[in-house]
């Protein structure tokens, strides 16, 4: 296999990943809404509704709040850019995407953190009460969730001896028995809590609510309208897609493209979609089954996630 072919397939895999996230992220939001609606006995909006919303928003007038600064238009772009780069280099479809050697745990976690920080700054930019409230709450949740995310992924890295995500996945493929080890299961529990918190789903935040006193994410984007809101929503949807597919791949890496053929690219894509849908289904069912927690009960849940992840690391170290 020549170096050019490897690069070409890397570029192809990266392109597929970005397109999948861009289209699939909003669709995933639609799918979850549909699953929830059906589980609650409603018909629900069509799955493509989030994409239609984006198209509608893009044609609307561009409105900026009076006291807002350059941060207001910049923040959604930063969220998009950090998510796209994180999605492009992460091993989603292939274990050899473009720049896959830089797809380190810390790179992905801190790219996501950059996005969260940009969103929180966006909430503070217009100088309103609700924006600040949303930012403060989102950062509080983030401050407790991000460490759990980092430590949980580190737990996975112990057996592989590297913090490089593609290497973690390839070594998991060669050691399938690792997947059901106690360390992995603990880490899975932690990651599920983190992913629910980071994507603002029930029981942490309710994406469907505009009830003022409970909202977190919706409060932060209250001043957004038109094209900027479209970019913001797209960025958030892509983040959701990225987190779900990463969790799916970290625990069920099978199907991911490891060699360089067109068939495996296709297989990798299909496998990724299937695995991600599985995670989305699970999260949607959790959402249906649970009620939103009070804001000040959240730290208990998130601290639980953090403790699980630390236990996962300790278990990993003991059983290595």
């Amino acid at each position: 296999m020549s170096a050019t072919t490897t690069t070409l397939y890397g570029v192809a895999a990266t392109l597929v990943q970005v397109v999948l996230l861009g289209l699939g992220g909003p669709l995933l939001v639609g799918v979850m809404a549909k699953v929830k609606a059906r589980a609650e006995g409603r018909v629900g909006a069509p799955v493509v509704q989030p994409l239609r919303d984006l198209r509608k928003l893009l044609t609307k007038e561009r409105l900026h709040a009076r006291h807002a600064s350059v941060v207001l238009p910049l923040a959604p772009m930063v969220i998009l850019a950090s998510t796209v780069v994180a999605g492009a280099i992460s091993p989603l479809v292939s274990t050899h995407p473009l720049l896959g050697s830089s797809a380190d745990i810390l790179v992905i976690v801190y790219l996501l953190l950059t996005g969260s920080a940009a969103a929180a700054l966006a909430g503070l930019d217009a100088g309103t009460a609700f924006g600040g409230m949303g930012s403060s709450r989102a950062m509080t949740i983030g401050a407790l969730a991000e460490p759990a995310l980092l430590v949980a992924v580190i737990a996975l890295s112990i057996q592989s001896g590297t913090s490089n995500l593609p290497s973690i996945m390839s070594s998991t493929l060669t050691h399938p028995d690792w997947v059901f080890g106690p360390s992995r299961l603990l880490a899975l529990g932690a990651l599920l809590i983190v992913v629910i918190a980071e994507t603002g789903r029930i029981p942490v935040d309710n994406p469907a609510t505009h009830l003022e006193l409970t909202m977190v994410h919706e409060a932060m984007i209250l001043e957004y309208a038109g094209p900027e809101l479209a970019l913001f929503s797209l960025g958030e949807a892509m983040r959701l897609g990225l987190l779900f597919s990463l969790v799916a791949n970290l625990f069920l890496p099978w199907g991911i493209m490891t060699d360089h053929t067109l068939l495996s690219l296709l297989l990798g894509t299909v496998a990724l979609v299937a695995k991600t849908l599985l995670v989305a289904l699970g999260v949607a069912l959790i959402e249906v089954r649970s009620a939103k927690l009070r804001l000040f009960r959240l730290p208990e849940l998130l601290a639980g996630g953090f403790v699980l992840s630390v236990l996962a690391v300790v278990t990993g170290l003991v059983t290595r």
Binding site: V109, S135, E146
Partner: peptide
């Protein structure tokens, strides 16, 4: 390292925001 990462983000988002 993990815990301070999250807390530092809060402190400096607060400072700038």
């Amino acid at each position: 390292l993990a815990l301070t990462g999250g807390l530092t983000a809060v402190a400096f988002v607060k400072l700038f925001g």
